[in-house]
Design a protein around this nucleic acid. Sequence first.
DNA 1: TACTTGACAAAACAAGTGTTCGGAAGTTAT
DNA 2: ATAACTTCCGAACACTTGTTTTGTCAAGTA
Lengths: 216, 216
Amino acid sequence: MRKHEMSDRQAEIYQYIVRFIRERGISPSIRDIQRDLHISSTSVVSYNLDVLEKLGKIVRNDKISRGISLPGLTPTMLRNEIGRVPLLGTITAGSPLPDPEEIDISRAEQIVVPADVVPPERLTNVYALKVRGQSMIDALIDDGDIVLLRQQETAENGQMVAAWLIDENAVTLKKFYREEGRIRLQPANSTMQPIYTHPDNVRIRGRVIGVLRSLI
Amino acid sequence: MRKHEMSDRQAEIYQYIVRFIRERGISPSIRDIQRDLHISSTSVVSYNLDVLEKLGKIVRNDKISRGISLPGLTPTMLRNEIGRVPLLGTITAGSPLPDPEEIDISRAEQIVVPADVVPPERLTNVYALKVRGQSMIDALIDDGDIVLLRQQETAENGQMVAAWLIDENAVTLKKFYREEGRIRLQPANSTMQPIYTHPDNVRIRGRVIGVLRSLI
DNA sequence: TACTTGACAAAACAAGTGTTCGGAAGTTAT
DNA sequence: ATAACTTCCGAACACTTGTTTTGTCAAGTA
């Protein structure tokens, strides 16, 4: 058995289950899977379902009909009301941002994102960071907020981005403006001064596409 | 048949189904219900399930095992990962806040709230408003944000509230401070001046307990 | 009274459905 | 190459489960 990967057939079965539950609200039977995926025998389906269960992708409820359930992937998600993104760490101005590619995303804590904030279909390559300190308050982001970032290397003028200043080795959330020969990183508060720097000194790590704040 | 009410037995069955799906993630079978509720016959269960379906409480999927699903009440909700609150309208500084008690909450658009922002068990008497204009930007709240408010008449010092200034007939989001003989409504931005007014001129409509912002 | 309707009961029926088993074919490791 | 393991196949088996049928009984209702 592969370590953590599904075979093509297993992926096909898994996607079928996800789609079935999304559309019908109930689990498919083994024979549903067999018929619609043109699999020769129910035993093959059963065998691969066992593999999927060992991979933690599904849960089989022994001996009961339509007993497949999806841990962590529920009908509400599938109805596109919410999605999930990994919470990759904490960001503080001045400290380096953890590199999203270096982290085992499947093991990271998951944050629920309502479709009203970011539609689930636009949630690929999105991760979350918890803001520590009030150093981004000028960008309407407060201590304890959770920011949602889409991983990208470029940005349009005016977008809020997480920018890595290489020389300073600091990451900061600012509005991004490309000007003649330089980059302007503009706080949202007019009492704060913008940062001007050379384009080569800036790496965009992601663009802020949502904020969640709890004041309880 | 009653117009819209469940009989005791139907309510019992309905609650059993909800509990079953919450705990097991799959629908119960008719015989599960019969056994655990000590009902004499499967046909009685089937009969009452038909009634529940006509009431819109459940959906029966014809002839397939464990085919009961709950419209609008999903496993994710039951697992307390999200809740819902009604979106009662738009708030703009200067315009009156719609009175939450006057609105048919059951008909209002529902906003999904992640447990990370407000735990579902604390979501009673909470409603949402969409912020129009940038007049609350000093309170870290921007145009288009959705604010979550708990309906309450009083507040502690420092809490952010929706306050109704009676004479001015204006609603504003500010931090609330009770001082000697007056109320101070403090913006979060030090460049803005606080509002001082007489306690009789202020009615607290609710306290801000969460913010959702989409920048897409 | 006679008729209708809602609610329930018991049993049997007919599918639906998960499981098992012997064996074949392909893959990987030694 | 040989062994060990994975994956697949076809069929049968046995249990699970929704449905149907035939009644009973009480409460309305004309």
